[in-house]
Structures are given as structure tokens and as C-alpha cells.
Simulated scan of single mutants.
Amino acid sequence: MKFQMIHENYNVADLSRSLAFYEEALGLTEKRRITADDGSFIIVYVGNETTDFELELTWLRDREESYSLGDNEFHLAFQADDFEKAHALHEKMGCICFENHDMGIYFIADPDGYWLEVVPAK
């Protein structure tokens, strides 16, 4: 039996803001969208041409409070083909939230506080 990872879900407070962030910061664009008939939720799958794996962004109409991410001890990792250029972009965007110079990696935070690891190409 084999399993293939296909997506990970993040719930977001402002779908437009999140879509703009993921496109600018990581080059992820909308692949498909599901909208509830009653407008109670919208699910947008974003991705790019490097993999079939997608990030699922879910917006819930009736959610007013911010999402609790606990200790935020989880993350999604991205490998950058041009690490220095990626770092410069994220620095300009002001979204770098942690750097580990010894390991040669850093993390960015999306508008809802989810951490995303950026690693150099091998």
C-alpha cells in the first residue's frame, strides 16, 4: 500500500490577503476553488509547477476570532532554487520571523501566523 501527500490545510481570516501573500512570497497561485452554496466557506487550493502538492486555504464566513496556532510547533517547508534572492524578497516583505544561520535556513510567517520554512537547494 502506498500513500501520496496531496495537500495541507491552513484556515485563514482574510482569503484575499492570504492569496496575495502566498503568490508574492512563494509563487503559489490558485489552482481551483470550492465555494459553499450558502457562502459559508471558500476553499482555495494553491500550488506551483514544481510539485503536485497543494496548500489548501480555507476561509469560514462566520469565523470572527483569530485562529489559535498553539505553540506553532509545525510548519511547511519550501526549497528555494535561489536562496539569497528569496531571502532578499522576504526581508523586503518583512515576513522573516526566525533565522537559523548555523543551519542555513529561515522561517517566514504568513498573515495568520503560520510559519513556513525556507531552505536552500541541495
Rank of each mutant, 00 (worst) to 15 (best):
M1L: 15
F3R: 05
F3A: 10
M5S: 12
M5E: 10
I6V: 14
I6N: 12
N9R: 13
N9W: 08
N11S: 15
V12T: 03
A13G: 13
D14L: 01
S16V: 08
S18Y: 04
L19P: 05
A20G: 05
F21M: 14
E24S: 10
E24P: 03
A25Q: 04
L26V: 05
L26N: 13
G27P: 08
G27C: 11
T29G: 08
T29K: 10
K31R: 13
R32V: 11
T35G: 02
T35A: 14
T35E: 15
A36I: 12
A36Y: 11
D37S: 11
D37K: 12
D37A: 12
D38V: 09
S40N: 15
S40C: 15
I42C: 01
I43P: 02
V44R: 01
V46A: 05
V46E: 03
V46Q: 01
G47S: 08
N48E: 06
E49I: 05
T50V: 12
T50Q: 10
F53M: 08
E56L: 03
L57K: 14
W59C: 05
L60R: 10
D62V: 04
E64Y: 04
S68M: 07
L69W: 01
L69Y: 00
G70H: 00
D71Q: 07
N72M: 03
N72Q: 02
E73I: 00
F78I: 04
Q79P: 00
Q79D: 04
A80P: 02
A80Q: 04
D82K: 02
K85Y: 03
K85E: 11
A86N: 01
A88M: 03
A88C: 05
L89Y: 07
L89T: 08
H90Q: 06
H90T: 06
E91W: 04
E91V: 09
K92N: 10
M93Y: 03
C95Y: 02
I96C: 06
F98R: 14
E99I: 10
N100H: 07
N100V: 07
D102P: 01
M103Q: 14
G104Q: 09
G104T: 07
Y106N: 03
Y106P: 00
F107V: 00
A109I: 00
D110P: 07
D110H: 06
D112I: 02
W115Y: 09
L116H: 11
L116M: 06
V118E: 00
V118A: 01
